[in-house]
Simulated assay, not measured.
Amino acid sequence: MARSRAPKAAAIAGAIARILGLGASVVLLANLIYESVNWGKTLGFSVAVAVIALVVDGSELMGILDSTRTIPRVPPSCVIFGDLLVLCLAIPSIFVILRSNRDEDPVEEPYPWDNTDALSVAVTYALCALRFLLLIWSCAVCCIVIRQPRRPDSRSTPADSTSELRDVPPVG
């Protein structure tokens, strides 16, 4: 009979943070596509940031939520690199979004895309803040993994406190 398994609180917190990151990336991507379709703005750099963030968060989330352990987790050092890459690309992306209106002729009235630009900048700020927190989280996990001795019977993926599942007695 199979034992029921439940993720630790750290894995749940990590999954919630990655889901928030996925949501922010989807909102940013949808807003940038909206700007591109309606006003012909090409913000490819910002789109690339949103797509890379989707890939990083999606791969980590799949490893966290897989209770069968058939999907291997990405090593913590690679997650750190992914989070750092997204953070380093998202900061200049803010300036790209703000700078995208500088080529237009000065008009007395506000541009029709001012609100969508403001949303893009706000979501990119949120993405940067969340990415910074996830980077700190990933560094802490990496330090925990480095300090843990390797078990001879462990799988090919390193032991990770956020992915370890604890046994829970069956209900009933």
Rank of each mutant, 00 (worst) to 15 (best):
M1Q: 08
A6G: 03
K8V: 03
A10C: 05
I12M: 13
A13E: 13
A13I: 11
I16R: 05
I16D: 14
L20M: 13
L20Y: 09
G23A: 05
G23L: 04
S25E: 06
V26G: 00
N31S: 02
L32Q: 04
L32F: 05
L32W: 03
I33V: 13
E35R: 02
E35C: 04
E35D: 08
S36I: 04
N38Q: 05
N38D: 08
N38G: 07
G40F: 07
K41H: 07
T42S: 01
T42K: 13
L43D: 02
L43M: 08
G44I: 05
S46K: 02
A48S: 15
A48K: 01
V49G: 00
I52L: 11
V55R: 08
D57E: 13
E60H: 07
G63T: 00
L65K: 00
S67G: 08
T70N: 11
T70A: 10
P72G: 07
R73K: 10
V74R: 12
V74A: 14
P75N: 06
S77F: 14
I80N: 07
G82E: 00
G82I: 01
G82Q: 01
G82N: 08
V86M: 07
L87V: 15
I91W: 09
S93K: 00
R99D: 14
S100E: 10
S100T: 01
S100P: 01
N101D: 15
N101P: 03
R102V: 11
R102G: 07
D105M: 07
P106Y: 05
P106K: 10
E108V: 10
E109M: 11
P110G: 01
P112N: 04
T116A: 12
T116Q: 07
D117G: 09
D117R: 08
D117K: 09
L119K: 01
S120M: 02
T124D: 03
Y125E: 11
Y125Q: 03
Y125F: 15
C128N: 14
R131G: 15
L133M: 14
L134G: 12
W137G: 12
S138A: 15
C139F: 14
C139S: 14
A140D: 13
V141M: 15
C142K: 15
C142I: 09
C142L: 15
I146Q: 08
I146Y: 11
I146W: 14
R147F: 06
R147L: 10
R147Q: 12
Q148A: 12
P149Q: 07
R150G: 03
R151W: 06
D153P: 01
R155H: 14
P158Y: 12
P158W: 02
L165D: 10
L165M: 13
L165C: 05
V168M: 07
V168G: 06
P169H: 09
P170L: 08
V171T: 11
